[in-house]
Design a protein around this nucleic acid. Structure first.
Lengths: 234, 234
DNA sequence: TCAAAAGTGTTGGGGGTACACCCATGT
DNA sequence: ACATGGGTGTACCCCCAACACTTTTGA
């Protein structure tokens, strides 16, 4: 980086963060994304990704968390940097570069009806979304592609489930994200053989059939194995 | 993105691009990175990644290409966005956010001794680099990790080789990047079975042993297969 | 003729895929 | 009793890993 020149010499692009927040609805078998409706031009009344300006005294990830909390009341999420979008004309008002983050949450934790600050935030099924503001369609498309790719190579799916879950829920989650169906026996064999699931001493409640065992993802064990060169794969 | 507020309301971080330019030296069996020596404080005389400020009228990738050409005379490279680094204190002079790109070039194409604008650019073996300026060590480490990962999942290695190459060169390249040794027969079987290599009607010249066939990577065929759902894998 | 790298096949094992039935529970 | 999903085992096939010798060429 050539920082020999004075730091103030050039006019600067504006810098924002945007968040692609994913949640799954296991009952509806639906991958959802959290959007907010704009109430100012440009793109007034269009839906857009939550986000906003980066302040000077906060890191990019801090900015993403802050905006997410302010606009949608969503907190404590798994956040990951996705990409930067910096085309010259991506915003009609001028040069605005945005850093996109993707976030994974469990849908039930965030009932937006209860959120006070969230004026017009709502969950949309990802394949029903269309015509978002700015280049947010592109950002969402990349986020979906990356999610599908990552879910096979890193144990991020668990961030979309409650702490205790059944193997069937886990399988359904993978099916929703990948858009395929999976063989029950093979899925269970593989996922159990990874040695990362702990079967709890508890079963589902209030189901009109045989209750399934509950499992939790063993984060500590995963970290241990990862250090020894273990690579997670579906 | 909440663009309801006026675009000029907040003070903005400065925005730069930095490039991690990789090249391989097949003779020395070395993965190299291109660095420039700083001639102003901070970090005067330290080595750093080439890069500089993003102008208002150019995209991020254009900025990366421009800075690379200006500082090192390197042009026509395969460029890919790596990540954004935006910690508040990553630059002692103030808030500077940088977009890191990684680039792959064939070493022989860019003899820096012949470059006129490149004051103090030089190739370094990646495992001999230490104590770069700013957080460039972190950026380089991420770039190396990503390169190792990507080389197994996308046919990017060919961007590091001349257009016509031997299978042994290709194998050596993989060995250099992955830091392992590979079995010659298994490697050739796998790489040929992908159906992406075209054997040219030509062999190596000026070698003191049996001359090897030359191959080229069939970019068109790769694009065709990719559209049909084909996924490259080592 | 020697040195140096090119080129080539087979075998065994592990993991992935395909596939169908009985079990436990709540109503 | 019945409906609903929970839970389990086997056989085959393919791909990966391990492994050594002959061929070609220039010096």
């Amino acid at each position: 980086m050539d920082h020999g020149n004075d730091i103030q010499e050039y006019p600067r692009p504006a810098l924002t963060v945007d968040c692609v927040v994913f949640g799954v609805d296991l009952e509806e078998r639906d991958l959802r994304v959290l959007l907010i409706q704009r109430d100012h031009p440009p793109f007034k009344h269009k839906w857009a990704l939550p986000g906003g300006y980066v302040h000077l005294e906060e890191s990019l990830e801090e900015a993403a968390r802050r905006e997410l909390a302010e606009e949608t009341n969503v907190t404590d999420v798994y956040l990951e940097q996705l990409a930067v979008f910096g085309d010259v004309d991506r915003d009609p008002r001028g040069r605005i570069v945005t850093v996109a983050y993707s976030a994974l949450v469990t849908l039930r934790d965030y009932d937006l009806r209860g959120a006070t600050d969230a004026r017009d935030a709502a969950w949309f099924s990802v394949d029903e979304v269309e015509q978002l503001a700015f280049d947010h369609d592109r950002i969402l498309a990349l986020a979906c592609a990356r999610l599908r790719q990552q879910v096979l190579q890193e144990p991020i799916a668990f961030a979309l489930l409650p702490a205790a879950f059944t193997l069937t829920q886990l399988q359904r989650l993978y099916e929703i994200i990948l858009g395929t169906t999976l063989d029950k026996r093979n899925f269970r064999k593989k996922v159990v053989s990874l040695g990362l699931l702990e079967r709890l001493n508890a079963v589902e409640r209030h189901v009109a059939h045989r209750a399934a065992w509950l499992y939790r993802f063993d984060q500590r064990e995963y970290q241990r194995k990862k250090k020894r060169g273990f690579r997670f794969a579906l």
